[in-house]
């Protein structure tokens, strides 16, 4: 396993895009969050302003950068045919998936930690963002789960392009449908099952009664999506020809 890990780490480390994408994650997340906190003013005394969530607005873009990084890790092996070599070297195929997941999680957790902490610090310049562990820690985990989810999808569809299309579609479908739907019961249902809409409850620090899920339950829904995707990927990787 350590050999597989080392080979996957080398692949990730030496791909020219990786460092840029991780840097992009940090810059995009902090930048958009800073902008959002800077331009927002609360004119009504009772406006539903959640400073923590506001300072984390950049995650909307940051998660896409994470997804690109994750789908390229698997998708590019298929587009170059490298996957055949990888699987020949490691006949126990699920270890390849596990190794990829592990080497992806480390750098993503690190960069996401910087991005989320930076967003909160940047947000404190304009809004009274409290230092709270749950949203910060939870959002870092959220980004890691998005990365693993994208990785699993790329392994299932065997193409970076199609995988990123599906990830983006899932990111957007639930909030857009919820915005267009009139029926409150359906809105709640949509927000509860969408991987991003459910997971993003973790960023919220307002009254949990108004949320679709309690923060950690919401993250649990995303974790279920991720686990299901990775499991399917493992089974398909084992069964199919590469």
């Amino acid at each position: 396993m350590s050999g597989v890990l080392r080979s996957e780490w080398t692949k990730l480390r030496t791909t020219s895009g990786t460092a840029w994408l991780l840097l992009g994650l940090v810059v995009a997340t902090i930048g958009i969050g800073w902008l959002a906190t800077a331009v927002t003013t609360c004119t009504h005394s009772d406006c539903f302003l959640d400073p923590t969530q506001l300072s984390l607005t950049g995650v909307q873009l940051g998660q896409i950068v994470v997804a690109v990084l994750a789908v390229m890790l698997f998708g590019n092996e298929y587009s170059t045919g490298l996957i055949r070599l990888t699987l020949a070297a490691t006949p126990r195929r699920w270890t390849v998936l596990a190794a990829k997941a592990l080497v992806l999680t480390g750098p993503v957790l690190l960069a996401a930690g910087v991005a989320v902490a930076g967003s909160v610090v940047a947000g404190r310049q304009y809004q009274s963002v409290p230092f709270r562990l749950t949203p910060v820690l939870g959002t870092v985990i959220y980004l890691a789960l998005i990365a693993l989810f994208s990785l699993g999808l790329a392994a299932i569809v065997r193409s970076a392009a199609v995988a990123i299309g599906i990830v983006l579609g899932l990111c957007y479908a639930y909030p857009l449908l919820a915005a267009a739907t009139g029926d409150p019961a359906w809105v709640r249902r949509l927000l509860q099952i969408g991987p991003t809409t459910a997971g993003q409850n973790i960023m919220s620090t307002v009254d949990p009664e108004t949320l679709a899920h309690a923060p950690w339950n919401g993250l649990g829904v995303l974790a279920l999506w991720t686990a299901g995707t990775l499991l399917t990927a493992a089974v398909l990787l084992h069964r199919r020809d590469a």
Binding site: T40, T41, T43, C47, L49, L54
Partner: peptide
């Protein structure tokens, strides 16, 4: 309009 902010 309810608010002039990001969010709900």
């Amino acid at each position: 309009e309810d608010s002039n902010t990001f969010g709900v």
